[in-house]
Computed example of a mutant assay.
Amino acid sequence: MQWIYSYLLNLKDEGIVVGNSVTMVGKSGARHEVDVYYEFGRAGIRHRVAIECKDWATPVSKGQVQEFESKLRDIGNITGLMVSRCGYQTGAETFAQHHDIVPLRFDQLPSAGNIFAQRLSTVGLPEEDYVGEPFWVIMELRDGKVTGTHFGQKDESGQGVIPLMFSRYHAERALREAELDPKRWAVRGLPRFAFRAFLLSLELYEKRMNARAQLLFLPPGAAPDAPFIGIPVSREELIREYYGGKIPSIEERVNRRLAVADDESLNADVAEG
Rank of each mutant, 00 (worst) to 15 (best):
V233P: 01
D181I: 09
Y205L: 09
D225S: 14
R188F: 08
G221C: 10
R257L: 12
A261N: 08
Y169M: 12
S249A: 05
K246P: 01
M165F: 15
P219G: 03
I229G: 02
A178Q: 12
E206I: 07
L190V: 11
E179L: 05
A261P: 00
V260C: 04
E177L: 15
F195D: 02
P163Q: 05
R208L: 14
P182Q: 08
R253S: 06
E252H: 01
E241F: 13
L202K: 04
Q214K: 06
K154G: 00
L190I: 12
L175Q: 11
L200M: 15
I162Q: 03
L164N: 02
E203S: 00
L202D: 01
Y169E: 15
Q159C: 08
I162F: 11
I247L: 09
R256Y: 10
F166C: 03
Y169K: 15
I239R: 07
P220F: 08
N210H: 14
F198Q: 02
R212L: 03
E172S: 11
Y169P: 00
N210F: 12
E237Q: 15
R173I: 13
G221A: 10
A259F: 10
P232F: 05
L216R: 11
S234R: 13
L175E: 03
F193A: 09
R212H: 14
D262I: 08
L200N: 01
R253E: 03
R257F: 07
L199W: 06
N255S: 11
V254D: 00
I239Q: 04
F228K: 03
A226T: 14
G158R: 04
E177N: 12
I231E: 07
I247V: 15
L164Q: 05
M209T: 09
A222Q: 05
Y169N: 10
I239K: 04
A223E: 14
D263K: 14
Q214N: 06
E237K: 15
P227S: 12
S234K: 10
A186Y: 03
K183L: 11
P163V: 05
R240C: 02
L175I: 07
L218A: 05
E264K: 14
R208P: 00
F193G: 00
I250G: 00
L238T: 11
R208I: 08
S167A: 09
E264H: 13
L258A: 13
G221H: 12
P232Q: 07
L175S: 04
